[in-house]
């Protein structure tokens, strides 16, 4: 049985659902799924991991009580070595973007981020390149293999198993020259864009920061994340972390609503893989209208309040 390491992430004290899709993608008869959890916030995640076929859970304990990517990556490398793991899969998430390249650099191992397909036997993956205009098949060679998966590309499927739980303490030297002063959270990042099933994004048509409230109001009923086009970010209406596109976040939701967004090449680069794209724009000739599944030619200032009303009456 080849052990496959899964770098598990948490949100609000629980395992992020996107990890279960990752476990599903990694599962095979000749493999053992090993969940690697750094300073896990709760112990009640065992059953959830077992449901998706994990048979070993390694609880990595570091002596830091805060986010420290240098130390956490070093702890993951140590846990991989202790457990004979040469293949690690994680998410191309904010934490994954920090940890996976650090692990790969330490092990001098190949790494492909944002994989949309993985073949763990042949060490071959698919990922998008050139702003989503091409799909590259990449062959990896080396002694260790690190994969960063795009969230939500594989739907989670249960395959119940029983898991043993192992504690692993990482107390090695603190990585030199790197110190965490603080982490500031302002609460605006309620839901990470790339892992959301539904995203509603606003663009130039919103006209100002205040009008984004119309989008947030609809998003709240759907538990959707809110994104934005580059224009909205460059105008300072919303923070950069909400930008979807070439130089922003690349997303892969089930539903992407583009509101008042014309649809530049750079914006498509970040959202073209969405399953269902719904566009609302006053301009019937905007590029987005020809590259979506549904479009409404109309004023977002009429349609968003109507949508909010319809959603409110449904969820009440």
């Amino acid at each position: 049985m080849q052990p496959i390491g899964l770098l598990i992430e948490f949100k609000s004290g629980h395992i992020k659902p996107a990890n279960f899709g990752m476990a599903t993608a990694a599962r095979a008869e000749n493999r053992q799924l090993v969940a690697l959890m750094v300073d896990a916030p709760a112990d009640d995640d065992k059953a959830a991991l077992e449901a998706y076929g994990v048979t070993r859970i390694v609880n990595i304990h570091t002596d830091s009580n805060q986010w420290n990517p240098a130390m956490h990556a070093a702890a993951v490398v140590a846990a991989m070595q202790e457990n004979g793991i040469t293949t690690l899969i994680g998410l191309t998430s904010p934490a994954g973007r920090e940890l996976l390249p650090r692990v790969a650099a330490q092990l001098d191992a190949p790494l492909v981020m944002d994989c949309i397909e993985i073949d763990l036997d042949d060490h071959r993956v698919k990922t998008s390149q050139f702003s989503g205009k091409t799909i590259a098949t990449i062959a990896m060679t080396g002694t260790h293999f690190i994969y960063g998966m795009r969230a939500n590309v594989i739907a989670p499927l249960e395959a119940p198993a029983a898991a043993e739980v192992i504690d692993f303490s990482y107390t090695a030297n603190h990585p030199s020259g790197f110190e965490v002063i603080e982490t500031r959270t302002d609460g605006s990042g309620s839901q990470y864009l790339a892992e959301s099933d539904i995203i509603i994004s606003g663009g130039r048509g919103l006209k100002n920061a205040e009008n984004f409230k119309l989008i947030f109001d609809c998003a709240r009923h759907l538990n959707a994340a809110v994104g934005a086009s580059r224009v909205a970010v460059d105008n300072g209406w919303v923070p950069y972390a909400m930008q979807v596109g070439q130089t922003g976040v690349k997303v892969n939701p089930k539903v992407y609503m583009a509101v008042g967004i014309s649809g530049s090449v750079q914006h498509f680069a970040g959202m073209k893989t969405a399953k269902t794209i719904i566009a609302i724009n006053t301009d019937a000739n905007a590029p987005i209208m020809a590259h979506c599944d549904y479009y409404a030619v109309g004023d977002l200032f009429d349609i968003l309040p109507a949508l909010e009303k319809a959603l409110a009456s449904m969820t009440r």
Partner: peptide, 28 residues
């Protein structure tokens, strides 16, 4: 170790747009 591109293909798009029409409430 290395990462070697074996194949590069253009990304294909699979959307065929359909119009939503009517009043704002209809569209919603």
């Amino acid at each position: 170790a290395g990462m070697q591109i074996q194949e590069l293909v253009p990304a294909v798009e699979q959307h065929s747009p359909k119009a939503l029409t009517g009043s704002p409430a209809d569209i919603a």
